[in-house]
Nucleic acid binder design. Sequence first.
DNA 1: TATTCCTGCCAC
DNA 2: AAACGTGGCAGGAATA
Length: 739
Amino acid sequence: MGKNIRLNNPRPNEDKSLSKAAAKRRQSKETIDEAWQRIFAMKNSATDERRLLEVKQAMENGIIGRNPADMYNAKGTLKNFSKAEALRLWAELEELERRNRLKELVDNMPDNYRLVTTESEFYDMVESLAKEELIVFDVETTGTDVYNDKIVGHVLSATSVDTHYYVPTGHDVSPVHQLTKGYLDVAEELRPIYEDETIKKIAHNAKFDVQMLKNDLGIELKGLYWDTMEAMRLLNENEPSYALKPLATKYLRDNSYTYGELFGQVGFNEINLETALAYAAKDGDLTYRLYKFQRHHLAKHGKMLDYFLNVEMPLMTIVSDIELRGYDIDTDHAKRYAEELRKKAGKAHDNVIKHLGDINLNSPAQLKGAIEAHIGRTIKDTNAKNTLKPLAKEFPVISDLLEYREITKLLSTYYDALPQLINPKTGRIHTRLHQNGAKTGRFSSGGGGSFNIQNQSGDARKMFVAPEGHYIVNADFAAQEVRIIASLSQEEVLLDAFARGVDAYATLASRFFNKPYEECYKLPNGDDTPERSQMKVVLLSSMYGATKFGLSKTLGISVDEAEEFRQTFFDTYKKIGAFIDKAQAFAKRNGFVWIGDKARKRRLPDARKRPKRIPYGKYWSEEYEDERKHNSAINLAMRQAPHAMVQGLAAIQTKVTMIELDKLVKARGWQWFAPIHDEIVLYTTDDLSAEDIADIDLIMTQSYLLDGVDNATDISIQKRWGEYVSAEDYLKGKEVPEI
DNA sequence: TATTCCTGCCAC
DNA sequence: AAACGTGGCAGGAATA
């Protein structure tokens, strides 16, 4: 029992079956142990349960005790210990622990951390940094909004002498001495170092620091060499967190607290300088130690180090530029079209309500019941493509519902949402691009109050326009993934089709259905033939691991027919099947697959697991749920293995090509729009010449060559995204549609 | 009230 | 009784 806990003694032997009066009497003299028993018998949430246990432990260890103010009521009699009081104590405990952590941080601060608050200290630091080949940098800020927040200090590490500096510039603590503008212009004094290409820079989540330096101080960082956050995505794409502190705790065995664990919600500008130094300089220290650890491990495996230094790192500055550039939105069009859509949605809504009753059409749960009542049979879900579409002919109300869905999606995700994101500072909307956002190495986009540039629908694209005097130019890799499948599998029929410049799917279909090529390509009206469409579905979905069931659904044929189709397909194109088998066998043996000539890995630990046997007929029984999950994780890894090799290689091709294209962008004074997987989009000037287009074509097709297959690109030019003319037509003199 | 999960759907 | 890979966002429902 804690020494500072003053409570009546426990009475463990007291009879539990008491009269009401006795119970009342007992309650008023409840011991702390009884109180805990009562509290833990309550229905507590998992978090509360955990917090209560922490408080109990802390009280028993004498770390914390009841507040006298909580112990007695107005009459001065002892109050029972309540759950609410316990949870109040938890908050106190947290604060106490926070202070302890801070004290520990400051007390244990190494002596190679230096606070820079005087001119002489500052110039000593600059002199030391200027001699370095490699420095760590990190800016401390008032927040994470790169357009509005301010830099309050600079972390800089001289790595060769293992010295970590903190230069506070904007801490609102007084009275303290710090180097602020007017006394010594820290930004201008540091600019030569930040902008010196020959001093290599390391940072954790460098894009943020680069953008803060640019937006707040107008500094263009040069010589960015290593980002420990991005490197970690290469070293382990399955890592649960890429924040510095968890990585340091895990890989450097340095038990590091997060910002929140140390400072809670307080801004860094309010932290006193001694504490700020201990925290900030440690970031520089940890980042450098993480760099050494990462470099060692990347160098051990294939060409990963080379790929990281020559592709991922140079790409980072391009990505930062893309985010800061942003997009010009045609707000007039957005407003007009949104209004039109709202009217249509209203009509569709009313039509549906008439038949289904007054329900919330956005609620799948309510909708399901109402539809079932209306059509007189049960449905699996309210999925448009699989469930509702087949019902639309029979029940007109379903058509209205589908129209309502389509319009409200367009409004809520695009036409209403995007104009609201216009940044008052830039007048544009800004995306966020994560260059290893997908585990295969693809980009992902969005998050943090931004939007996803990569899933703009055809309609939504029309909001995006080129500024006066510019074009939006799209260059896509023609059949990028199929060329990669051809290259990785070396399947002759595919290689031959690409070599002859004929359509790959039609060629496969021609062989498969034993019909002339022309009859498998296009119909007289220009549509795809059913043979070509089917072949496309079979090839791509089989690559992604579709079973006969999935295939039967997408092709609209029976399961047996689908299986027959699949079998014949893989019998005919044996090398495609062999590629899949080989990828899966490799993953099963090694727990990962290589991507792009050992540039990176996709780690699939589940691939190594042994399937668990489930007795016949018991597959869906409750008792085998764990086995079922175990096996489906293995199956998933097996589907991922070949697909990751294809998607991952495509991502590398796009990235390498971006780096080459960036040279042209800079030389011509163009700007970046975005990468969209197999499509690269630029803002060019509207004097775009035949030579410019030839240069783009050359870079798209020659920057990353595939084994045995040529690359091809389709280029299109527009002022409003999606309303394009092909490069071919443009060169013949066809006008680019006006906005 | 704020956070997390689920359903559905946009992109490649 | 599920059955195709990689993502992100909106809105409702469930949970804390």
